[in-house]
């Protein structure tokens, strides 16, 4: 018989070689960034930071399919021995939750000054930049007159024809909490109950809403500007509307990226340098010029024409801390009544 323990030696040697490759480290300064903005857009920015500073960025990305359970829970679970220096979140609610959990460290970045007050933490635990907005996406082959407000989704003509992402997760959860904060409990509950009665479809994520509206499965839905723009650029028959922009309207919810220093991370100084870079005008311009058309918060940044201008957007009159405080109670309602 030709088969002996040698086969195990080969297996073990193979494993050892692969392990050595996998564990190989490069010398020099580095920073560990946990990034929930999609790699497609964040990686070029981190590569540019590497090229300019010589600091190697070891990035870990989140995925929408993980229902944002990934990085936030990882930071919480790692709190005894933090591995991340910087948390770059593509929205704000989770960052505020991490601040409350005591896993962030305050940092007064010199680049913070250019960001308007409403988009940064007064205690300096986090700073916002490059925002997305909630939009109504519609299929241009199925809808000639798109609704101008999210309340219009309750109208009979959209019964069974509209979709939203699961309001327990991601930016839809944040949007739901914002509605509870602005409208109050009773109105917001009535709105979601009405959506349910009108047969709204609840999909796994905003990208799925875009895809299914683009394919004509649904006539319209709620998603974010970046998702909607992806559909437009890919040539699908979709259009987008910022909701409630007319006089007296509620306005739309802006969702800035947020960046924060993780308390006790292994490379705090490099982490601070990365934060300074991310809050600079070049990063906002790069994100505005990408497929995700993120809206610059720094008034000095001149974005391409396709990007909605911050000053011209009617935004929901609510502060981020209030929204964050609503998150848990809203999630309980959504889980136990809306999705029942």
């Amino acid at each position: 018989m030709g088969y002996r323990w040698e086969i195990f030696v080969v297996f073990t040697a193979l494993a050892a070689v692969f392990m050595a490759i996998g564990c190989a480290r490069e010398d020099g300064p580095e920073v560990v960034a946990y990034v929930s903005l999609d790699e497609l857009y964040s990686r070029p920015i981190l590569d540019e930071f590497e090229a300019r500073t010589g600091i190697r960025v070891r990035a870990q990305y989140d995925i929408e399919a993980a229902k944002t359970t990934g990085l936030v829970n990882r930071i919480l679970a790692e709190r005894g021995r933090p591995r991340a220096d910087v948390f770059w979140n593509n929205e704000f609610a989770q960052t505020i939750a991490l601040k409350k959990a005591g896993v962030l460290e305050a940092y007064d970045s010199p680049s913070r000054g250019a960001i308007p007050d409403g988009f940064k933490d007064s205690d300096m635990y986090w700073t916002g930049f490059a925002a997305r907005a909630r939009v109504i996406i519609y299929n241009t082959e199925l809808v000639s007159e798109p609704p101008g407000s999210i309340r219009d989704l309750l109208r009979a003509e959209w019964k069974g024809r509209a979709a939203i992402a699961n309001p327990l997760f991601g930016t839809t959860a944040t949007h739901a909490a914002a509605l509870f904060a602005v409208w109050g409990d009773e109105d917001a509950r009535a709105f979601f109950t009405g959506l349910r009665a009108n047969g709204i479809a609840v999909l796994p994520g905003n990208a799925t809403v875009r895809d299914l509206v683009a394919r004509g499965e649904y006539a319209l839905g709620l998603t974010d500007t970046d998702d909607a723009n992806g559909g437009v650029l890919d040539g699908f028959p979709v259009g987008r509307v910022l909701p409630a922009q007319e006089g007296g309207g509620l306005g739309t919810l802006l969702l800035p990226n947020t960046v924060a220093l993780v308390r006790g991370g292994p490379n705090p100084e490099a982490g601070r340098r990365l934060i300074d870079y991310l809050l600079g005008p070049e990063v906002e311009l790069a994100l505005a010029s990408s497929r995700s058309i993120q809206i610059p918060l720094n008034p000095a940044v001149e974005a391409p024409e396709s990007v909605p201008e911050l000053a011209k957007i009617r935004t929901m009159n609510v502060d981020f801390d209030s929204i964050s405080e609503q998150m848990s109670s809203t999630a309980v309602f959504i889980r136990e009544e809306f999705l029942r």
Binding site: L40, I63, E64, A207, D226, D227, L233, D234, R291, S292
Partner: peptide, 11 residues
Amino acid sequence: VRIFGLLHYGP
């Protein structure tokens, strides 16, 4: 992980 990331709003 890369693919699921791109599924969000990659081409």
